[in-house]
Amino acid sequence: MDERFFDPLILQRTLSEYARGFSALAGAVWGPHGSVPADSDTLRRAFAAGYQQLFAPSGLAAAGPASGSGAAFEQYQRAAAHSAAIGSSIAGDAGRRLAVALAASGPGAPPITSLRELQALWIECGEAAYGEAARREEFALAQAELLMALVELRAVSA
């Protein structure tokens, strides 16, 4: 059992992060000047930054050490960088998908009048971009490479 989940402080911190993520969506919409950006490219970049936090570095990469030395650590660094690059690519694709969805019109694209609706679309576009990338050979190889690099780090530290 992962008892950490039942630590009230960790639970509080986890949920606070998601609450902050919600606020960040609003920040992406209005930007520093307090008005909705006129062009979707600015919006796309702002939303992609949110996706970036989620997809790169991946959870696995974050499980590794921040510093170290030796062949195993170098292998881990390469694997983490490869995984992060894929994550960045997914974030960029998700941002593009969201920009397209926001620019859509017609009966299948009703107006978005609340942050919750915007968040739902943000999630939908992010999941679609991730789902497509996660099915590629390159993604599976990168995840396995990262996992095995972490295993080798464990082996040398044992």
């Binding site: 107006p111 609340s114 942050l115």
Partner: peptide, 9 residues
């Protein structure tokens, strides 16, 4: 392309 669906108050 504009974010035409965004009508947030």
């Amino acid at each position: 392309m504009t974010a035409s669906r965004l009508t947030l108050d």
